[in-house]
């Protein structure tokens, strides 16, 4: 038995998907998404998506990296095994800077990537949209809007009517397999 996941409308151009997204957003739906083969400028605003939270992860990673760098140099050179090197002080904030700087960037980069995967809930190798027969075009040359059945305002005929007003190439029902 298959369950309806949502309804998909297929478009051929970036301006068309932009207009479609604005329409769906003003219609008040909350559980919906747009699929594009590349990021379309302005689409985030049209969909009402807020600014991404990835920078938080980046910042935390960077802060951790910097502290780690300074701490290991201080601990190793000043506390644990101080050695006289060239008559220089055991610790100064200047010479650890390259090490701390590189670790800042390294951990910030890890933070960014982990943040992006976490916020996108990836890896997710299966998603109902992949059942769509023309799904391969959504990562190639076509654009789509999907309104999920789980949305409170979802009503199949209303959604079809809304889509029809946008003149898509086609309108399809996306189903997902029931878990046994």
């Amino acid at each position: 038995m298959s369950k309806t996941y949502g309804i998909l409308a297929l478009f051929e151009s970036a301006p068309a998907i932009y207009q479609a997204a604005k329409k769906v957003r003003s219609a008040g739906y909350t559980k919906w998404d747009v699929f594009t083969p590349f990021p379309v400028h302005g689409l985030d605003g049209a969909m009402g998506i807020k600014r991404s939270k990835v920078p938080v992860f980046t910042f935390i990673g960077g802060l951790m990296g910097f502290t780690l760098g300074m701490t290991i140099v201080w601990y190793m050179g000043y506390l644990d095994y101080p050695l006289i090197v060239g008559g220089m002080p055991y610790y100064s904030p200047v010479f650890p800077f390259p090490v701390a700087y590189e670790l800042t960037i390294l951990l910030a980069a890890f933070g960014t990537l982990i943040g992006m995967f976490t916020l996108n809930k990836l890896p997710m190798h299966y998603h109902p949209v992949m059942n769509y027969e023309k799904f391969r075009h959504l990562t190639d040359d076509k654009f789509a809007v999907v309104i999920e059945a789980e949305d409170e305002l979802f009503n199949e005929s209303e959604v079809r009517e809304l889509f029809a007003g946008l003149h898509p190439t086609e309108i399809t029902v996306i189903t997902e397999e029931e878990k046994a």
Binding site: V34, A108, G115, M116
Partner: peptide, 20 residues
């Protein structure tokens, strides 16, 4: 990684790209 071209994903992706 199961990428499907969702714009909600592109939003985080573009931010991560800019940050990197």
């Amino acid at each position: 990684m199961g990428w499907r071209g969702s714009n909600r994903h592109w939003s985080n992706y573009e931010m991560a790209y800019l940050l990197l």
